[in-house]
Design a protein around this nucleic acid. Structure first.
Lengths: 115, 115
DNA sequence: CTTTCATTTCAATGATTCTTGAAGTATTAT
DNA sequence: ATAATACTTCAAGAATCATTGAAATGAAAG
């Protein structure tokens, strides 16, 4: 992932509705949620929800699959993880200082360079 | 950090020039860089660099301090770490699945909820 | 085959964001 | 004081993004 691609993924995260979608999809688990349920969950009209889902799908953050009438969306943890890796490693050089500020992660010592 | 604030910080990261600024500031270390040096580093005209630096400063990602004639910018690792925490913990509920996709971090087991 | 349901796409509009060059502000040197 | 340096702010225009409601598509049911 290069800077331009990462910028696109960050752009996809740069919206409260879309972060709400992600939160809902994490809660929903591996089965995901239908577009309609997501729309209700974030309190947006169908076309608005669809617009935001398309932005997330374009960025690769969500994947969709038709399930009879409805489209089921689920989160791409791989993609989200790749973005975090870009920021931590490629952009910030695995900075120990940044690592230290990331309390959500019970990290051991910084990994060796080039692993 | 709530969804709206996080969206603002993601917006600040949603630009290749600004990611370049961050990269340059990580490399520069704790002393940071002057606005002029940053402009050269990312290959942008002064006013354009200033515009992007203002976006980063508004989002709290960089801090600045006058040093004689020039303004010295440095990265706020705290702020960047807080964003990563928001995504990992508040938004994604500390998801083991996301953790597993974040190879940059040599994590042990997921931290207990509410630590 | 027509209707219904679920969702997307379209079109129009308004709001933000980005870029550029010119003008303005702060700080130091002569 | 004047000039030079280092930035920022402003103004105008182009580009992108978001919201709304209406129309179109795809899948299933009657």
């Amino acid at each position: 992932m290069d800077e331009k691609e990462a910028a696109g993924v960050f752009q996809a995260l740069a919206n409260a509705d879309r972060l709400g979608v992600i939160r809902a999809l994490v809660v929903a688990g591996p089965d995901g949620l239908s577009a309609g349920d997501i729309a209700i969950e974030v309190g947006a009209a169908p076309s608005r929800a669809s617009f935001h889902l398309a932005a997330l799908a374009d960025a690769g953050i969500v994947e969709r699959e038709r399930q009879s009438r409805s489209l089921q969306y689920r989160l791409s943890f791989e993609r989200l993880g790749a973005l975090l890796n870009f920021l931590m490693e490629d952009c910030c050089g695995g900075s120990a200082q940044l690592r230290a500020c990331t309390t959500g992660c019970s990290c051991g010592p910084a990994p060796e360079k080039g692993r």
